[in-house]
Amino acid sequence: MPTLRDVAKLAGVSHTTVSHVLNGTKRVRPEVADRVWAAVETLEYRLNRPAQALRRGQSHILGLVLPDLTNPFFPGLAQAIGLAARKAGYALTLVDSLEDKTVEEEGLSRLAEEQVAGAIWVPVGDYVPPPFPVVLVDRTAEGTDGVEADHFLGGQLQARHALAMGHRRVGLLSGPQSLRSARLRREGFLAEAKVGGLEVVWEEEVPFSLELSPKARARLRAVREEVTLVVAANDVIALAALEVLREAGVQVPEEVSLIGYDDIPWATLAHPPLTTIRQPVKEMAEAAVALLLRRLQEPEGEAVQIVVPVTLVPRGSTREVRR
């Protein structure tokens, strides 16, 4: 079995340098790091992460547990968290829970076995504390460190844009109300709609996915006779709605406007480009990593909840209604 010194010899560096590269404990020149990782691959050297963690008293690995990597919002969040973690000297272990509570529990158990220092987590369902420090993102819980966008404000901004464009009758594709983020978006929208006299003619609760229910699809096919704007709880739902409208021969925004939420990369590639609410992913990621590192330094400190603002991004999928 190859040793650390074998890797060092093949890479032409000291075993101390190899240790720094593998553990992220000290910055080395990129060309040196490349030689070390090439030697690791050639020799098929395997790190014993749990043993390392026990020797040091704390690992330099963070867990990241996300619910659905098919939703483009989460890969973007993962990349931003990975960059922030690397800057702080930590590696990242990713778990995709597939929106499945059992898979999520298995992933959390594996992170515990790997002795991660802590984890950043977007829970699938109710929050149950794992045996290591965590920061919840997007779907926060009381008494636990968390970072989320101002979803209530996001719903308000959707309604304000609708009113500013002269819309008075809308259809609402609300997200799963079991999730705090979806509930807050809906509550913010309905509160502002009530103040401004915006009528929600119909509402369908749908998952945060491209799979719309038959009833939601039927609503969209008959949209001309009922509403002038469709409001979606996220961009993936909005893109699914856009496809149904296109299949039904409904022109967006000439006949019906459409607005989403998240500002995923696909939003600008849609035809027309999607009006949406932008979540500040980079700021959320950096805040989550900083909060987790603070928790590692102050295990008994008070829980901190951070709410970051969102912004409206108007594009071609909405237009002013002629009075």
Rank of each mutant, 00 (worst) to 15 (best):
residue 228 T to D: 00
residue 229 L to T: 03
residue 230 V to R: 05
residue 230 V to K: 01
residue 230 V to P: 05
residue 232 A to M: 02
residue 232 A to V: 02
residue 232 A to S: 11
residue 232 A to D: 04
residue 233 A to E: 04
residue 233 A to M: 04
residue 234 N to V: 03
residue 235 D to Q: 07
residue 236 V to H: 01
residue 236 V to A: 00
residue 236 V to T: 07
residue 237 I to Y: 07
residue 238 A to N: 13
residue 239 L to Y: 04
residue 240 A to G: 11
residue 242 L to G: 07
residue 243 E to Q: 15
residue 243 E to D: 12
residue 243 E to M: 00
residue 243 E to R: 14
residue 244 V to F: 12
residue 245 L to R: 15
residue 246 R to W: 13
residue 247 E to Q: 15
residue 248 A to S: 15
residue 248 A to Q: 13
residue 250 V to A: 08
residue 251 Q to W: 10
residue 251 Q to D: 12
residue 251 Q to P: 06
residue 251 Q to T: 11
residue 252 V to H: 14
residue 252 V to T: 14
residue 253 P to A: 05
residue 254 E to N: 10
residue 254 E to G: 05
residue 254 E to K: 11
residue 254 E to R: 12
residue 255 E to R: 09
residue 255 E to F: 10
residue 256 V to M: 05
residue 259 I to L: 14
residue 260 G to S: 04
residue 262 D to Q: 12
residue 262 D to V: 06
residue 262 D to W: 03
residue 262 D to E: 14
residue 263 D to L: 02
residue 263 D to M: 02
residue 264 I to T: 14
residue 264 I to R: 08
residue 264 I to W: 00
residue 267 A to Q: 11
residue 268 T to V: 15
residue 269 L to W: 13
residue 269 L to Y: 14
residue 269 L to G: 03
residue 270 A to K: 02
residue 270 A to H: 01
residue 272 P to W: 08
residue 272 P to Y: 08
residue 274 L to Y: 09
residue 274 L to F: 10
residue 275 T to F: 03
residue 276 T to H: 10
residue 277 I to P: 01
residue 278 R to P: 07
